[in-house]
């Protein structure tokens, strides 16, 4: 029982089809309480459909789906009492003002008129929307709308919040604000399930990531584990003079003991390795042989590389299935 009560979301063999499209095709997830769990994948991968099933908006065709131990079909109301959904498209009423939107939600949740206004103002202050409280949401910027959207989801701080592409289309500053909010939510003990197409977003926020493609989980783990499963990191070196590249290649492959990859930039080359000691030695050898370098870096592979390795294509390139998810 103890290990069970630790679990916020558990799905097994989750399938959801729309006509002939298997939007979600056998997804198994286990999300522990208090963590940020990222669903990462391109458009049409099945992320939104998965979230909609978890938020009791869609009935799964097969498989079991439990949120805090409650079945999303049989005990939908118990689930709804503990989760909040922030949809991909603003789930606030554009004709109403920011204040009215929050009061509406608060009233629906059972706050009195007075409490509703107090809580709404508290949230508007906290989200930097106090000045815009009396304006219609249709006149908000994308970032303000997103913040109001999240504020509406935490009128009663939920135990679990679903954020469907929370930063899609936001400028970098608004994006940082949303990230800040997510971190504050987690610090307060809320479990977060977010979807994203941005690899760095998943890397920044998520404790664990499931990579989803064509309705299936193709990889799962902590960001570091995922990167490790792809293989070692790489040393990138940039030379001052491209003519030195053959010489630099000889030195690096000799000291590192691995083949050197020549990049399209004629002054750059890289080698797969994650041993900092050997790298330090190799760089020292380069300078001893009189090859000046302008820049070097040693890093784990990016999630882009992870996706490329897992699927054989880059995440961004796949826009062909856009419409499927939209239809869902």
């Amino acid at each position: 029982m103890d290990s069970r009560s630790d679990i916020a979301i558990e799905t097994s063999g989750l399938v959801k089809t729309f006509g002939k499209t298997r939007a979600v095709d056998g997804v198994d997830l286990a999300v522990r309480r208090g963590m940020v769990y990222g669903l990462l994948g391109p458009n049409g991968a099945g992320k939104t459909t998965t979230i909609r099933v978890l938020a009791t908006l869609l009935r799964p065709d097969s498989g079991t789906v439990q949120v805090f131990g409650h079945d999303v079909v049989g005990e939908a109301d118990a689930v709804r009492g503990r989760v909040s959904l922030t949809g991909q498209f603003a789930s606030v009423d554009e004709d109403l003002t920011g204040l009215e939107n929050l009061v509406l939600i608060a009233r629906l949740l059972g706050f009195s008129r007075k409490e509703s206004r107090a809580r709404s103002h508290e949230l508007l202050d906290a989200f930097g929307l106090a000045e815009a409280a009396g304006r219609q949401v249709k006149n908000y910027s994308g970032g303000m709308r997103r913040r109001l959207d999240i504020a509406a989801s935490i009128v009663v701080t939920p135990d679990l919040i679903f954020l469907d592409e929370p930063t899609a289309g936001l400028d970098p500053r608004s994006r940082n604000q949303v990230w800040e909010i997510v971190r504050a939510l987690v610090a307060g003990g809320t479990t977060v399930l977010l979807t994203t197409q941005y690899l760095d977003e998943a890397d920044q926020l998520a404790d664990r990531i499931a990579v989803i493609d064509h309705g299936r989980v193709i990889a799962e783990g902590a960001p570091g584990e995922l990167k490790a499963s792809v293989g070692s990191g790489a040393l990138h070196v940039r030379l001052r003079d491209p003519e030195d590249r053959p010489e630099a290649g000889r030195v690096l492959s000799g000291t590192l003991g691995v083949p050197v990859h020549l990049e399209s930039d004629p002054a750059a080359l890289s080698a797969r390795t994650s041993d900092p000691g050997r790298v330090a030695h190799a760089l020292a050898e380069l300078s001893r042989s009189g090859v000046p370098i302008t820049d070097f870096s040693l890093g784990q592979p990016s999630l882009d590389e992870v996706f490329l390795t897992l699927t054989g294509r880059t995440a961004e390139a796949d826009d062909s299935t856009d419409t499927e998810e939209d239809a869902a």
Partner: peptide, 28 residues
Amino acid sequence: ETLRSALSARKRPQRANALSASLTFGWR
């Protein structure tokens, strides 16, 4: 600070009854 304090409120009121929920949507 305001963000954290706003998030720390965990008060969950008694849920609105059918009539009050309907009237709230009517207000909308």
